[in-house]
C-alpha cells in the first residue's frame, strides 16, 4: 500500500509538474508552429534611436501643429475636450514650463514663452520602465521605451515616475474622441497608459517617425551610437539641451534652443 502510494505520489507529482511547466510555458509564450520570427528586412535599424529637435527652425504655430496632427492621426490619439482626460503623444508647452528648472532670468526676448515640442524622451534609464510591475513598459534593444498595451494593468505607477509628464492614461474609451481614424493603427482600450512610441511601427517599415517626416528637416532622427550619424554630427555642431538632465535619466530627445530668432 505504502509503496503504491509513494509510486502514485511520484506520478501525481510529475503530472502536476508537467501541468505547471506547461502552464508556465503557455503563459510565458510557447512556439506552436515550426516557424521563425525575425526583424523586418526593410526596417530601419539602430543601436540607439535619438531625436534632435531644432527649435530654431520652428517659427509658426503651423510648424508645430502639423507635426502634432500627423503624429496624433497616425497613432489614433484621441483629443479630449476635458483637460483631465487628455492624451498627448506630441505636444507643445512653453519653454518656461518645459524646462522649469532653468529658472534663468533675462533670456532673449520670446524664449520664455516659446513653445517647445514635447514627447516621450525614451530615456536610457527610464524611470517608467524601472517602476512598471509587469514589464508592460520596457526597453527595446534599439533604445526605444516601448509600451505593451496588452499587458498594461493600468496602475499608473509609470505616470507618477515619469519626470517629464510624457505619459497619458485612457481614463475613458478613447474611440469616440478620435476625429479621424487611421485604419492602419489600433486604438487603445480604457484603462491603459500610452505615450509616444518613436513610431516603432513605421521604423519597421523603413519609414522615419511621422513627426520627423512632417517636420521637413526641423527634427533629426538617427542612431546616437553611430558617430557618423546625422544626429551626432548635428549635436556636435550645435549647443543642445535635454530636459532635466540632473535626474540621470539620459533622455534621447535633444533640443536646440538657439535664441534671438523671431518667434511666433
Amino acid at each position: 500500500m505504502s509503496m503504491d502510494r509513494r509510486e502514485f505520489l511520484k506520478l501525481a507529482g510529475l503530472t502536476c509538474i508537467g501541468i505547471g511547466v506547461g502552464g508556465a510555458q503557455l503563459l510565458v509564450r510557447s512556439r506552436i508552429a515550426s516557424s521563425e520570427y525575425a526583424p523586418a528586412a526593410e526596417g530601419l535599424q539602430a543601436n540607439r534611436w535619438a531625436m534632435v529637435i531644432d527649435l530654431r527652425k520652428f517659427r509658426t504655430e503651423e510648424d508645430y501643429d502639423k507635426l502634432i496632427k500627423a503624429c496624433h492621426y497616425i497613432h489614433n490619439v484621441p483629443s479630449f475636450p476635458d483637460k483631465y482626460h487628455e492624451v498627448k503623444w506630441l505636444w507643445k508647452e512653453d519653454f518656461e514650463h518645459s524646462f522649469p528648472e532653468q529658472k534663468n532670468r533675462y533670456l532673449p526676448e520670446g524664449i520664455e514663452k516659446k513653445p517647445v515640442l514635447l514627447l516621450c524622451n525614451h530615456c536610457s534609464n527610464a524611470p517608467c520602465v524601472r517602476v512598471c510591475p509587469t514589464k508592460a513598459t520596457f526597453k527595446l534593444s534599439n533604445g526605444i521605451t516601448a509600451q505593451d498595451y496588452h499587458r498594461c494593468i493600468g496602475c499608473r505607477f509609470c505616470m507618477a515616475a515619469c519626470p517629464y509628464g510624457a505619459r497619458s492614461f485612457n481614463w475613458v474609451d478613447p474611440r469616440p474622441y478620435i476625429k479621424e481614424v487611421n485604419p492602419e493603427f489600433p486604438t487603445r482600450t480604457p484603462g491603459v497608459v500610452e505615450k509616444c512610441n518613436f513610431c516603432v511601427e513605421r521604423l519597421s517599415e523603413g519609414l522615419r517617425p511621422a513627426c520627423v517626416e512632417a517636420s521637413e528637416g526641423k527634427i533629426l532622427f538617427g542612431d546616437l551610437r553611430d558617430e557618423g550619424s546625422e544626429v551626432r554630427r548635428y549635436l556636435a555642431e550645435n549647443f543642445s539641451m535635454r530636459r532635466k538632465p540632473e535626474l540621470g535619466t539620459e533622455p534621447a530627445v535633444f533640443y536646440i534652443i538657439g535664441g534671438g530668432e523671431e518667434h511666433v
Binding site: 510591475p133 509587469t134 496602475c155 505607477f157
Partner: peptide, 29 residues
C-alpha cells in the same frame, strides 16, 4: 484599494505572471 485603482483589473495576475523585481509595486504586492 489597489484593485479598484487599476485600469485593467482583469490583468491583475500579470504582476505575478511577469514578475518584475525592479518594480517596487511588485515587491509591495
Amino acid at each position: 484599494f489597489i484593485f479598484v485603482d487599476m485600469g485593467q483589473p482583469m490583468r491583475i495576475f500579470n504582476v505575478l505572471l511577469h514578475p518584475t523585481p525592479n518594480s517596487i509595486l511588485f515587491w509591495d504586492s
